[in-house]
Amino acid sequence: MNIFRLTGDLSHLAAIIILLLKIWKSRSCAGISGKSQILFAIVFTTRYLDLLSTFISLYNSCMKVIYIGCAYATVYMIYMKFRATYDGNHDSFRVEFLVVPVGGLAVLINHDFSFMEILWTFSIYLESVAILPQLFMISKTGEAETITTHYLFCLGLYRALYIFNWVWRFYFEGFFDLIAIVAGVVQTILYCDFFYLYVTKVLKGKKLSLPA
């Protein structure tokens, strides 16, 4: 555990809680991609199956349970509780174009050809692209609520902090996991355009809207 990893995890947790609170307080999931949230629920489910087989630490187990619980709570709010406010027409990204290639890649390129390990690899690859339906939705509607941009910023920050964590672990522990690193870098790159808009618009008090 190092400071980058801890702040990365906390940033991830903040993102998840910001999204839940936004939906709960406004009683609306307008502008939120239900498809991205389903993908994140799949990501956590397939990655954290080791909760049942391997104990790493109390911190590790607690965070996993919280992440999974929040992911399903978010999906429940979008598709059940506040379904009437879900903007399905704008959430038109074809997720099969992500899930199918990612599944194929996980079978082909992994650390170990075992059931659990292929699911872990699948979750790593899927997480790297799971935000695409959300970014697609924003590009389609041309705008995002400020609270949604805070959510996205925390989520992107978490990935960036994990990269610093891997640099740290490489130098001080000799540890590196190429699959996680490549997928993590890809994921962080996807946020770059958004980071630029966040810094130039949202932090200056403007709403995030894209030029037509």
Binding site: R5, D9, H12, D50, T54, I56, N60, M63, K64, Y67, H111, D112, E117, W120, Y162, N165, D177, A180
Partner: peptide
């Protein structure tokens, strides 16, 4: 050879 030891990150 790659010795696989599991994953400790979230």
């Amino acid at each position: 050879a790659m010795s696989f030891e599991g994953h400790d990150e979230l």
